[in-house]
Design a protein around this nucleic acid. Structure first.
Length: 365
DNA sequence: AAGCCGTGGGA
DNA sequence: TTCCCAAGGCT
């Protein structure tokens, strides 16, 4: 595309799109969700902006994670670590333990790394532009734009899954994801207003979460039915178009829960890289394809009176896992790297949900 | 640049 | 039950 036609295209987009923000912001002023990391409408009207630390923390937690799942974690984190300096001073194990159950554990490791960078290199203040924010660990295209617009008022295109859905419907974009991302970004940039860019982004996300939903969108309640091309075609559920996804392979393995007479369990720490990196587990085998799975008592990490307690199934993003769950009572000191976790402090260990399920199966009787 | 990374809830 | 997928980033 020539430079001139690019300019014309951009101008045309702006002309079509500039009417979107006023309607959407009017809707947002009446229907914004009250969320713990937002400032209330009265404060917002006085120009009060939310604490960048809280915006950042919420955005990291919300990556690929529902609002409902995040709320209690956000409350616990902010109560325990009210500032980025406080979080930066926390020990790794405390943060991983507090994150346990929320998933995508690389986020927790990057969270700490980011907090320590902000505390150590930026005097405890988050940088105020999307470009600078994006240089920090765990902060990519979406999160940098979200923080910059919401906490600092920068006019920058914020594009998440909600906004992709809303935008592909508004403009009836037939190109499948992810190839459509550059076009979507252009549209979002054209729609984003100079005033209240952060509210605009949040309004788009609220619209996507409550009205313009993946299935059965409530178009009759939508403030953007007028300009919506998908709605005009009666094809709102046809967008966004997505590339077909591959089927998930099956993997199998075994996990060994050793229980001391006082109820303590033998745990070890998983490697920092890879699945559940840096998290705790009872010793488990590799998780392999069915043909070469390492299962059975012979795979135990040390000799004991192992008894098969059952199995646990768990679906990950890109494979389904079935683990045999073995249980043994032992008073022998376990060999190798690990520790005995007392029963009454198990809740604070950095145990992913899969491991808690396996422990539940092992201890059921 | 496509694959790797969790989890829980809704339909 | 099964499937989908939610405020993505990293490599």
């Amino acid at each position: 595309m020539t430079r001139v036609s690019q300019v014309r295209k951009t101008a045309l987009l702006a002309d079509i799109s500039r009417h979107i923000a006023p309607s959407l912001l009017e809707w947002y002023d009446r229907h914004a969700r009250a969320l713990p990391w937002r400032v209330g409408p009265a404060e917002g009207a006085r120009g009060v902006r939310p604490d960048p630390y809280r915006v950042w923390l919420s955005e990291i937690m919300l990556q690929q994670t529902t609002v409902a799942a995040v709320k209690s974690y956000f409350q616990r984190f902010t109560a325990r670590w009210p500032t980025v300096e406080a979080l930066a001073a926390a020990e790794d194990g405390q943060v991983m333990g507090a994150w346990a159950g929320l998933g995508y554990y690389a986020r927790a490791r990057n969270l700490l790394a980011c907090a320590r960078r902000v505390a150590g290199e930026h005097g405890g203040r988050f940088p105020g532009s999307a470009a600078q924010l994006k240089m920090l660990p765990g902060i990519g295209d979406y999160t940098s734009a979200a923080i910059a617009s919401i906490a600092f008022g920068e006019r920058v295109a914020v594009v998440d899954g909600n906004i992709e859905r809303v935008t592909t419907r508004l403009h009836a974009i037939e190109t499948p994801l992810p190839a459509a991302r550059p076009v979507i970004r252009d549209h979002v940039d054209a729609m984003t207003p100079g005033k209240r860019p952060g509210d605009f982004a949040q309004a788009m996300m609220d619209l996507g979460a409550t009205i313009c939903t993946p299935r059965k969108p409530a178009c009759v309640l939508c403030p953007l039915t007028g300009p919506c091309l998908a709605r005009a075609q009666g094809r709102q559920e046809a967008f966004p178009v997505k590339a077909p996804k591959r089927e998930k392979p099956e993997r199998i393995g075994a996990i060994f829960v050793a229980e001391r007479p006082d109820g303590a369990l033998w745990l070890r720490r998983r490697p920092d890289k890879g699945m559940l990196g840096g998290m705790a587990e009872p010793p488990s085998t590799r998780w392999s394809a069915r043909t070469d799975g390492e299962t059975g008592e012979d795979a135990a990490p040390f000799p004991a009176d192992w008894r098969l307690a059952g199995e646990v199934r768990h679906g990950f993003t890109h494979f389904d896992l079935t683990l045999e769950v073995w249980h043994a009572r032992t008073s022998a000191p376990a060999p190798g790297e690990g520790w005995w976790a007392p029963a009454d402090t198990l809740a604070a260990e950095a145990l992913p949900t899969l491991m808690r399920k396996a422990i539940g199966v092992a201890l059921a009787r």
